[in-house]
Every structure is written in C-alpha cells, then in structure tokens.
C-alpha cells in the first residue's frame, strides 16, 4: 500500500466538510482531483492523519454567469470542463488559452480549479491567470465566509492565505468591458511538463490602439506568480509597438530574481521570462493568432 495510514471521510455536504475541517484542521487534507495530493501521498511526502474527500459534495462544481457580468466557478470544477466551456471562452479567454498547458488531458479530466489554486505551485497556470484576471476567491469555514483577492492569496511557494480550517469554494472572475486582448506563453522541456517560466498578459486598447491598461504576470520565476508593475505602467498610454514590447520585456527581466534549480538556471528564467512577456504581448495584439478565436470564426 503506497500512502501511509489515514482516516477517510467523504462528506456529502459542504457544511459537513467544514465541520470536519474545523475538527481536524492541520491534521486533515482535502482531497479534490488528487492530481497533486495523491502523488505526494504515494511518495509519502505528505502523511495526513485524515483525508476529507470533497468529490461527493453537490454544489461545488459549476460555471455560472454572475449578475454583474462576471463568472463564478466552483472549486471542484474539473480543469477539462473549463477547457471546453464556451462561457469561459467568452468571458475569460485567458483561462481558455492557459488550461491546455496543464499536464495532459487525463490529468485535466480529474484535476480541479480549486485544487490547483490551493496547491499553488509557482509554475502552475491557473494561479497566474487568476492573478492577471483580478479574480476573487471565496473561502469558507464553519465560522463563515470571507473573500480574498488573488493578489492577497498567493503568499509563497505552495503557501496561500487558506487557513487549515478553510475550504476554497468558489472563484469569481470579473467581467472585462471594452477591447481587451489576451496572451499566454510558457516554455517547458516536454509537452505537459510544468513551465520553466511563463507569462500571461491582458491589454485594454482604445479605438486608436492606445493601451489604456496593461496587465502582465510571470510565473515559474519566483515563489508565486507575480504582476510586473513597472512593465504594466510603462505600457499604459503606449501603442505597444515593437520597441515598447522590447522595453517591457527588459523591465520584466530586470524585475525578476528567480532561483536556479535542476530544470533551469536563474539567468535563463530571468532572460526567458522577458521573452515570454514579449511573445505574450505579440500574441495579444495579433488576436488572429489565438487558436480559440479561429475556432469561433469557423463555427
């Protein structure tokens, strides 16, 4: 038997799960898609005393439009469902662009949006996208609910604002109004691997093509995904021409202070982080380069 001994609960309601979490706290682990937790348990890198399986709770898996025009996504929504959702493509195409980069389709069949956020691997795609989209998270405990902004959620390597007694229940993606463009780029050794480094960008353009707001996030280049403030400020008010894009890439490389590991050196991540931003900006400007837009035209 691979995992160490544990007690197993499969609550059928959210309240029951929150009660168990309140009771066991630090000794318990939530089991969502299992695509990160199970490998760690099989290798005995984690040995929870209690496993709380939330797969049988109704009402944690949904993709619903919100009254304010945004989107609410249940924490247990499988990554594969997001990948296939027309609603996500319409409201938050950045997410549709990023999801296919997660592992392989068999992993996405099971892996959940909430699991990816709670696990918070520094090279993971969903946390980077949520930070770029200015997403909010609903966290629940038996004491009540609170809402945390993405910028306050990711604290450090595999560490989030979630307390041991809290369950991530929903993510809320605000609506974007006007002419927004999207870009997502990452580099990895083999298809499906975690990114060595990557970038997500959103550009809000006026009708003359001047940038009203730029959002730039890098991931895999620090303990958490990071918004690149200097480059964002530099681009707003510009026409995001080739020189602007190169300067933004330079500002990003300057701002990064990544680590070296067996996968890549710090210098590589720093340089290529800038290149990923430049390419993501190019991709955002050339909307026709987005495969999903092509699909829509054809339909």
């Amino acid at each position: 038997m691979k995992p160490a001994r544990f007690d197993y609960y499969s609550p059928s309601s959210r309240d029951e799960a929150l009660e168990l979490l309140g009771q066991y706290g630090d000794d318990a682990k939530i089991l969502a898609g299992g695509q990160s937790l199970m490998p760690m348990m099989n290798m005995r890198l984690v040995r929870p005393k209690v496993v709380i399986d939330i797969n049988r709770i109704a009402g944690l898996s949904h993709i619903t439009p919100r009254r304010d025009g945004g989107l609410a996504v249940g924490a247990m929504t499988r990554q594969r469902e997001l990948e296939r959702s027309a609603l996500v493509l319409e409201t938050a195409p950045l997410l549709s662009l990023a999801i296919p980069y997660i592992g392989h389709f068999q992993i996405r069949n099971r892996g959940t949006v909430g699991g990816s956020l709670a696990h918070s691997d520094p090279a993971a795609e969903i946390p980077a996208v949520c930070l770029t989209l200015d997403t909010e998270f609903e966290l629940a405990s038996s004491g009540g609910e609170r809402t945390v902004k993405a910028e306050d959620f990711f604290l450090n390597h595999l560490t989030t604002a979630l307390e041991p007694v809290e369950l991530l229940t929903e993510i809320r993606i605000p609506q974007t109004v006007g002419n927004w463009r999207w870009g997502f780029q990452e580099v990895c050794r083999r298809d499906g691997d975690f990114a060595l480094v990557g970038a997500a960008t959103m550009l809000h353009l006026d009708d003359k093509g001047i940038c009203l707001e730029a959002r730039i996030t890098t991931f895999g280049a620090g303990g958490t995904p990071m918004r690149m403030d200097a480059a964002e400020e530099y681009l707003s008010g510009s026409s995001v021409n080739a020189d602007d894009r190169s300067e933004a890439a330079r500002l990003v490389s300057d701002a990064l202070d990544p680590i070296s590991d067996i996968h890549a050196s710090a210098k590589y991540r720093q340089d290529v982080g800038g290149v990923m931003v430049r390419r993501a900006l190019e991709q955002a400007l050339l909307a026709q380069a987005l495969p999903f837009n092509e699909g829509e035209d054809a339909a």
Partner: peptide, 11 residues
C-alpha cells in the same frame, strides 16, 4: 474519462 488509476483511491 481517461483517468490515472494510481491517483485515485479505490473507495
């Protein structure tokens, strides 16, 4: 759905 059976518990 194609699934890793090493990453699911029998229960």
């Amino acid at each position: 759905s194609a699934t890793r059976s090493c990453l699911m518990l029998a229960v």
